[in-house]
Design a protein around this nucleic acid. Sequence first.
DNA 1: TAATCCTTTCTTTTT
DNA 2: GAAAGGATTA
Length: 713
Amino acid sequence: MQDPILDVLNEKQREAVINTDGAILVLAGAGSGKTRVITHRFAYLLREKKLNPFNILAVTFTNKAAFEMKSRISKLVGYDLSNVWIRTFHSMGLMILRQNPEHIYYPKDFVVYDDLDSKALITSILKDLNLSKEKYSPSIILNKISSLKDNAISISEYEKEIFSNFDKIVLEIYKEYEKRLRKSKALDFSDLIFVPLQILRENEKILKKYQNLWQYVMVDEFQDTNISQYELLKLIVDMNKNICVVGDDDQSIYGWRGANIRNIYDFKERYNAKIIPLEQNYRSTPIILETANNVVSKIAGRMQKRLWTENKNNEKIKIFDAQYDKEEAKWIVETIESLIGSYEYKDLAVFYRTNAQSRMIEEELLYKNIPYKIFGGLKFYSRKEIKDILSYIKFIINTDDWSSFERIIDIPKRGIGEITLNKIRRFYEEGIPLAEILQNIGEFIDRVNKNAIKDLKDFSQIIIDLNQNKEEISPANFVKILVEAIGYKDYLLTNEENGEERWENVEELINSIKEYEGTKENPTIVDYISDITLQTVADEIGDENERNYVSLMTIHNAKGLEFPVVFISGVNEGLLPHSSSANSFDEYNEERRLFYVAITRAKEKLFISYSYQRMNYGEVIYSKPSSFLDDIPEKYIENVNRKFKSEILQNKSFTYRQLKNNEAFVVGMQVSHDFFGIGTVTFISDKFYKVNFKNYGVQIISLENIYSLKVVE
DNA sequence: TAATCCTTTCTTTTT
DNA sequence: GAAAGGATTA
């Protein structure tokens, strides 16, 4: 007898699928078929328990994962499941909020602020409170506020734990931030989890509704959940206690965002969960897996597991040792070129730790005419012109949104500067709706010049008209009408430096909205705005068959993906592990896991590279190869070039630094050169230096090449 | 109020 | 090296 749901599973996977009731913890190693487990389990539940699909809740972290699950389950069961509860955490939170509008302080059309919006709001609060941006950096403050919300700590609880002056200021900013968010009828990212949590905690009736609805719950990437998310889950499953979480503590790389790796350990204890490890890997070669195992095995306290595979092909890992980042990029691109033929572009991916590293590689790819796509960096949506339009839309939907208003009121120029803006703000703060102020601007503001009054009236007319028709007009048309009404194209072409390029971006935005329209039934601009704010980078990665490019992304963005050929670039000390992790053991371990995630994306070929000097902030910085490389057994490595393990590497106990601005080399100083190694300065002129190197004798280093010298301390 | 120039900051990762 | 912010002048 054939069973399409169970037959294709291995023993462990099957165990995870047929154990339907109670608490299950599936410890799914990289490439062990965890998506398959979740999708088949969903289908199995439908069949065996005769459930309505809406009675199952499956939560993921990216829309892409949710989308893929939906389509795979639909295929498995033979009918469409696009509207069931397979969602990201944030969109689930948003859904709960939208379904229970009477229980929150926000009306139906609240908007969601992304991080840039939140940061801008904090910046303006700092300004009004006369606090310096240096001492109270907006990103640090936002991190702090988010982390409180992510850890389910309320303002009053936080208040009790305040000792330092700094915390006191943070509290003040936090309170003001909340006040202004509310006044603008906006929620930030963390609120999308934290506010639903509060609602379910405080309202028995609503909680019961969801407990009855979701009889079975599944969670993907459980190691990435934060406290608030875990608390939310606990409430939801409290009645039925049917919860299956799938996770891998070795792939926990979001600690900095509040993810709490302890959730996975706590889950085991609290629910006395049945643990099912999936250790058979279907993705990579034995060498890649062994390397990955070695990198991560040092971490204390992890749940022991060792990936294995029946895969045969067993190529060594190629490591390239470059002098300059340019050279590194060149090698990557040349290698890509040489692989085309046996591989297609879509099979190849280049990873890096920080977004800024993509530029050098991009330049080389451009030069060689190789098609590529950079994922993330938030570039598109953080472009000025795109933010302008999105702010317009947000303001039209919600005319209480001060931050958006502030951004767009003088775009295009309407002669509104700080002074007029402050006048308007005073009325707004008195509680008069912005829309009303704008409509009757003449009565509110006396000494505004006639033109400004007319422009403001026109502006408010556009807002009102579009607001009234927001449900009727299709999203793409909405934006077209908007852009037309405010004369945005003319504005860009006459006022902005690369106006044409910027206008093309706006057109691209409209196109992408058209595409969005195709994915949903009767979408409105309101739907679009809430969906787009929650859009993640991984969501952009299109259908495999349509891709014809090399993929470039950060390692974080690579999680959950796989490629036949993977390049991990910039594997330098200070970059991976990142220097910011130097003071925290937890963070250092997270960097290690990051490297593990990068390695385990590779199916067949893995290339690793680093360079001794690279451009950073427009300055040259020096660094050694990553210490993580020491954990790769020599027998798995094929060194591509001669310099690997060169004397510089052997002299790792030295620390290097660049000369500071006013500092100079002096005779007798110990220095290190990227190629010649360690030496002593013997002569200085205004044209060149002479350095006596241990292994190469006296060499002349011209001033132009001075950056290849560093001080040895 | 707008336009221009100069200074400072930014980069770790992102739902 | 870009982008944002601040200061200065028109």
